[in-house]
Nucleic acid binder design. Structure first.
Lengths: 342, 342
DNA sequence: TTGAAAGCGCTAACAC
DNA sequence: GTGTTAGCGCTTTCAA
């Protein structure tokens, strides 16, 4: 930043022989300024190459028009879509996004929260890291009345709003679908069960089974980190099961695909021998063979909802913590990997 | 943000019966302060729940420790990786990222630049929108000595640094590979040729052909917007060509795959009838059948390089515009879609 | 090693 | 409709 002589409202005031306040008011179209002066002020500002000093403004107004965003990883299909959605809404409303990633660790997440706090974001949107247990690092945020929204991976935390999908319903739907296709022994591959998303999907899985009078078999529950390697490992575990499961509900597409490919290599026929349902509707899901049945939910939409709520709250339109949880719809996308009947 | 009584250095000064300047110095570990006072100051700050006011600081220091990033779209594999890379480096160096997307339009890009300027980012990293022609909206950036780096999709613009991959070389390599596989009639599907990336890849394509004494046939050059639909259309165009091409170099994976699938439906054997090479090494490339040969380049790496250079420049380690263009390596990933020989 | 004081550029309460 | 004035909280020169 060049430090030689930025043009200030004083310079404009001087040139126009009015007071700085008149300039300040004129610039932002304050009502009690004659439209004549307004025009003059703006013209002069333009002419002198004036740009408002945002620090001074923030210093006075105590707000930044910036929304902080902390996500586990920026480069996933879902997250980048969610951020794209937030960016769009934020931008339309004159807000900026300050973005950081926790890289799935609680430690980094804490630092991120501090940074956001230091930078005095007006609001904060967070999707929790994989291993975050303690949420006390959000205390300063709440204590300072900074509106906080968790999205997708949310925590049980006072006075924060949540934007999530109906994970229970989605899990229920996925497993019911498998049951309808005639599956009797359905395995479930999932992640850290203290994350709401996986916990709720598991509940949906159990409920669907019980609705079909099938009792939950803990052996069929495989828990890992949902990496591709974990998908391969899970496939091996499943191949060792006796009797062999005839259906799998995997709580993420990418390990689902890794798992499916491994099974295929062992001459397992998908979906005839084992039907598979994933989660996320990643682009890959419709590119592989057989195409993967999965749960679709719109990241962009979720991002928009998050930003919209945060901004409405900041504008004072309504209080965010009243609307405590917003649940977005999902849909089951049925493709070849699970479809046994026409 | 709560507006009731934030703790300031004055409060600390008062409590400790020292001057504000001493507190200011103590807090940042200034050399000319006794380590005893430093300790006291820090302890007191901690005790009173002090947090520095970043606006006041910025107002004085005229810098924000923020780097602006403008990309066409956040939610592509490459871009989100690049941003993840930047975020990492920025964060390690105490910088924040202010991110916005141009959604591929020059108009939005202009607004974004203005916003970045208004927000006084210390540096700016930009990947150009698909349809940006005129670069004059970057003039204020340069005029105010804000370091500017273009990455991936760069422009010919004075005093901005570029971080790119060697598109010429990559195109050359891709096409040479097709030629080595025995292709004689190679079509090329590409995008807006006023974007360096596509322009240079085309040059590489031509050079490879000429090295094999094959003259460039403009009929084989298909230009579109690189969407999936465009890939399907391109496939149809190709099917109408007589003689049929026996190789295609597509300058992006996703239309390459759309194109390949369309060809497959018409009973074209890939790679026997037509060999295909894509570009980007998107995750899908290795999931489809046949797996797609493509050019790999690391978004994360590029993001890191961009951030590192910007920050080094800001720290005064060296001048960015001297190192005008940084070229990162790519590699050809040979997979089934192009491999005719073992 | 510490303090006094000026000022970064803007806003808004209050006065006219 | 416009001007005066007092800060917002911090840094930094200069002086002690």
């Amino acid at each position: 930043m060049k430090d030689n002589k930025e043009v200030t409202i004083y310079d404009i005031a001087e040139a126009l022989e009015v007071s700085p306040s008149t300039v300040s008011r004129g610039l932002k179209g304050h009502q009690s300024i004659s439209s004549d002066t307004k025009k003059k002020v703006k013209a002069q500002a333009q002419k002198m190459g004036y740009r408002s000093n945002i620090f001074a403004k923030n210093l006075r107004r105590k707000k930044t028009n910036t929304i902080g965003v902390i996500v586990p990883k920026l480069n996933s299909h879902f997250m980048s879509s969610a951020i794209a959605g937030m960016e769009k809404i934020a931008n339309e409303n004159g807000y900026n996004l300050l973005i950081s990633q926790s890289l799935e660790t609680e430690q980094k997440e804490k630092t991120n929260v501090e940074t956001m706090f230091e930078n005095r974001v007006d609001g904060l949107a967070v999707s929790l890291a994989y291993d975050t247990n303690d949420l006390s690092h959000f205390d300063p945020i709440i204590e300072n009345d900074i509106p906080l929204i968790f999205f997708d991976r949310v925590g049980y935390y006072k006075s924060a709003a949540n934007v999530i999908i109906d994970n229970f319903q989605a899990g229920y739907q996925a497993v019911t679908h498998l049951l309808e296709q005639g599956c009797k022994r359905i395995a479930h591959i999932t992640g850290n069960l203290s994350r709401n998303v996986y916990e709720d999907r598991l509940k949906g899985y159990k409920k669907a089974l019980s609705d079909y009078d099938i009792s939950f078999n803990p052996e069929y529950l495989i828990q890992n980190d949902l990496s591709d390697e974990a998908g391969v490992e899970a496939a091996k575990t499943i191949l060792d099961m006796k009797p062999l499961p005839d259906g799998i509900f995997v709580t993420s597409d990418s390990p689902a695909i890794a798992c499916m490919n491994t099974l295929k290599k062992q001459k397992i026929n998908i979906p005839a021998d084992i039907a598979i349902v994933g989660f996320n509707n990643d682009p890959i899901a419709s590119y592989i063979e057989p195409k993967l049945t999965t749960i679709n939910y719109h990241g962009t939409e979720m991002g928009k909802v998050v930003a919209r709520n945060l901004i409405n709250h900041l504008k004072g339109d309504y209080n965010i913590s009243v609307t405590n949880t917003i649940i977005l719809g999902t849909e089951l996308v049925i493709r070849a990997s699970s479809q046994r009947k026409p």
